[in-house]
Amino acid sequence: MKTKIAAIGEKDIMLIFKAIGADVHPITEYSQAASKIKKLAKEGYGIIFITENIASELDQLIKSYSDQFLPSIVVIPGLGKRNNYALKRLRQAIIKAVGIDVIPEK
C-alpha cells in the first residue's frame, strides 16, 4: 500500500521537507495545527512529521492516533528551545504498558 508523507511545522523547517518531496503545511498558529492533523489523517497520509513545539501543544490529539495503524506521527526537533516531547511520549507509553518507568533518567 502506498502512502504519502506530510510535514507540519514552522515555515523555516518546512522548506527542507519540501525538498524531499513531502507535502508541507507551514502553520503560524497552534490552533491551525489540530484541524490540519485531523484532515491529513483522514486523507490517508501514512507519516506525518510534526515539530516538537507544536506537538507538545497537541498532546491529546497525537495520543489519540497512537493506537491506530496509520498515520504514524513523528515528532522532530525544531529550531530553538528543546522540550524532549518525543522522549516523554516514549516514556509514557512504557509506563502504560509495564506499569513502571524503565527508562532511566539522565
Binding site: I5, I20, G21
Partner: peptide, 19 residues
Amino acid sequence: QAEEALLFPTKKLSVSVTK
C-alpha cells in the same frame, strides 16, 4: 531565493507500507 530554489521539488518521495 531559497524558497524559489526549492519551489518545485524534483524528488518524489513515496512510502509503501506493509503490515
